[in-house]
């Protein structure tokens, strides 16, 4: 039963990472842009949700606000900064978006102060659900559900809508679809805002069970990059697979390594070694995947 629960936890953590990685891989894949500031959009979503939920008393209004605020911030950033970077190399993108992190973090601190904000789940999500003998938080089930819903939404968006067809066409050949009369500039703004909105939504939901504070986006950002690189950049399916793989590896590593190591060494050192190893595990996974398949699991061979 414990193993099953940990398995579910891994799934849930993977979905949490997917919420963050989906927007990142969309932007990465469509525009070829490395956006380190994706974590800042996640933070903006969480802060917007906390502020609105505090003012109105409604978590769901806060979630709406997080989508809107992050998408608006994304559109603004795209218009002011990002659109000048598409034709530049990755280095310039890294530096510019690194600069955006500094501005967003300190700007947020200037507006909201230095202390973490209050944000909690609505009553409908804060209970537990019984799954055949296993008591499981309903929130975590909701995250799994939302992750799946967003995956389906993105597949539909990319495969079944005009917007998706244009995006994929733009991915394949920018000049061509420009020549066909599609306004590629506004298309990119829309895609970037969509990616930002997804990050903001993730920030609001995950922020409700974590600490809403300045810098909260950074640890998740690195993991989100790990996820999309393992999956293969630009692939929604890859991001999903990568997220689940990372989520499982991390959770099961933390849960099972101490006991596993205790069979070959004394208990006291096993606990400490296992903890160190567990924190390195996702990076070992990533290096192993890339050495085996240099463009990720679902990446285009090139």
């Amino acid at each position: 039963m414990l193993i099953f629960e940990q398995f579910l936890n891994g799934l849930q953590y993977g979905m949490t990472l997917f919420l963050m990685a989906a927007g990142l891989t969309l932007v990465f894949g469509v525009m070829g842009l490395i956006n380190l500031a994706h974590g800042s959009l996640y933070m903006i979503g969480a802060f917007a949700c906390a502020a609105v939920a505090q003012a109105t008393g409604s978590f769901w209004l806060g979630v709406g606000a997080s989508l809107a605020a992050a998408a608006a911030a994304g559109a603004l950033i795209e218009l002011a900064v990002i659109r000048r970077l598409y034709h530049r190399d990755h280095l310039d993108q890294v530096l510019a978006t690194f600069a955006l992190i500094l501005i967003a973090s300190e700007g947020t601190r200037w507006v909201f102060g230095s202390f973490p904000l209050y944000l909690s789940l609505p009553p409908s999500l804060s209970g537990t659900v019984s799954l055949g003998g296993l008591v499981y938080p309903s929130f975590r089930l909701a995250v799994i559900g939302l992750g799946l819903a967003i995956a389906v939404f993105l597949f539909w968006l990319m495969r079944g809508t005009r917007l998706g067809i244009r995006i994929r066409a733009g991915e394949a050949d920018r000049e061509m679809i420009g020549a066909l009369g599609v306004d590629i500039r506004s298309l990119y703004t829309v895609v970037f805002a969509l990616g930002a909105g997804l990050a903001g939504l993730a920030g609001a939901l995950v922020g409700a069970v974590q600490s809403v504070q300045v810098g909260m986006g950074e640890p998740v950002l690195i993991l989100a990059f790990v996820v999309i690189v393992i999956g293969g950049i630009g692939s929604i399916g890859g991001a999903l697979a990568g997220a689940l793989l990372v989520g499982m590896t991390d959770t099961l590593g933390r849960a099972l390594l101490p006991a596993a190591l205790a069979t070959i060494m004394p208990q006291a050192s096993a606990t400490a070694v296992a903890a160190s190893l567990a924190s390195m595990l996702v990076y070992i996974l990533m290096a192993a995947v890339l050495v085996w398949r240099p463009t990720g699991l679902f990446g285009v061979r090139g």
């Binding site: 490395i34 690195i222 990059f225 790990v226 690189v229 950049i233 390195m280 890339l290 240099p294």
Partner: peptide, 16 residues
Amino acid sequence: TSGVYFIMVTLAFAQM
């Protein structure tokens, strides 16, 4: 690896 993958795999080794 190359390109973005190289950027990220070097990051992974450093994080380890």
